[in-house]
Design a protein around this nucleic acid. Structure first.
Lengths: 213, 213
DNA sequence: CCCAATATCCCCCGTTTGGGGGAACCGTCC
DNA sequence: GGACGGTTCCCCCAAACGGGGGATATTGGG
């Protein structure tokens, strides 16, 4: 039996979900709350052996929303995993939840049995994510490359830019590349023009942030 | 009916999976291959209207493995989505697959019906991920913060570092912070000492790469 | 065949940086 | 009350940088 707590402000859903989870046979509800504050309060009262292993957490709740609650919860009890269960499909909330320490992110358009599966996944050390949310995650992970050179830098210029980012002086670069100091300066100047910057620090920032190196 | 192609080198599984998918009623198999080369070959022969919408892809295959095949495939036919189906649980392969353009990553320890669900998810624009793999993803997404300041920078120094990264000169920073030029230089010098660098470009690189800003 | 792009090199000059030194002030903690 | 870390300020000077100009050679298209 997995010990589970539930935080959900919408009463009908809370009751239905609590009921469903209780009857499942694989989980045992140790706390049910209508908002984050209530949940944290309930957990404070529970003896350690009764603490939930997984918390099913709504995001939009009065008196401490799901994100804040998750952050606090994970701070106080790092061993308690949080499974977010929400209607919100935006990536802002998704990333905030992940940042706060959520282990899973489930959308409410899924059948209740999926919640049960997800609770089991979380308890087993996994991170169930609804497919649409996982897509957003992958899409943000990927972009770095698609068009890695939007600045029209030449091969040589990229080579020089790498050395700039590595912190080399023009003289060092001239040695390393076997060209004259003056040539390095020219390359650097062209790089600045193309990146619309005027110092090494700015060029370095742009290069790293835009994945040019 | 979702048009699906299958690439899997292990014959018994390939046959079983092909059989299962065919009988499902929701997908139609337009190609079955035992390796990446064979798959690409098959796709080349298909008219555009017959091209699969989703490819179920094994990773370990002779003659072009799943990662390389995925990359090529996505290059040639960007509209074809790839669902990776593998035994490999390591994050190296997971990230390589994502990088190559995979839309989903399923582990082989799951029932065949999950593959069908996943194909539907992918077709619907989602990214089904096995819970253990999603966890690895989240864990790599999170670490940046735990100890964001391993260099013992003071508040003031971080403030200055931010401005350095933004490309400001010492004079500009002095104005912005309402302190003397000399003081800015002192802060910058201390930052260099703590970061073990000696130029703005290096400081900028370190600051960004280590999440100091 | 010529043109545009790329890479190479040079001069000049003012500004900025990096690093060496020193010193004062102010909280806080012991 | 003294030590300590953090912040503030100053002097000096060589090295590096940023930007202005111009020049030559090669190469691959149009």
């Amino acid at each position: 039996m997995i010990r589970v707590a539930l935080a959900e402000d919408h009463t009908p859903l809370r009751v239905r979900l609590a009921d469903f989870l209780s009857r499942s046979g694989t989980v045992r509800l140790v706390a049910v709350a209508a908002n984050g504050h209530e949940l944290l309060d309930a957990l404070k009262r529970l003896p350690e052996a009764e603490r939930p292993q997984v918390v099913v957490m709504d995001l939009e709740m009065p008196r401490l929303d799901g994100i804040a609650t998750t952050a606090t919860l994970r701070e106080l009890y790092p061993s308690v995993e949080v499974l977010v269960f929400t209607v919100f499909e935006d990536d802002t909330r998704l990333f905030a939840a992940i940042e706060a320490g959520a282990a899973g992110y489930l959308l409410k358009d899924q059948p209740l049995t999926d919640v049960l599966d997800a609770v089991e996944d979380v308890h087993a050390g996994g991170s169930p994510l609804s497919a649409p949310m996982a897509r957003r995650l992958l899409d943000t992970l990927r972009p770095p490359h698609p068009e890695a050179n939007p600045f029209d830098l030449t091969d040589r210029e990229i080579e020089v830019l790498r050395l700039v980012v590595a912190g080399h002086t023009n003289t060092e670069m001239a040695d390393a590349l076997g060209i004259a100091f003056a040539t390095v300066k020219t390359h650097v100047r062209h790089i600045y023009e193309k990146l619309h910057v005027s110092t090494r620090a700015e060029a370095t920032r742009t290069a790293i942030r835009r994945g040019l190196v």
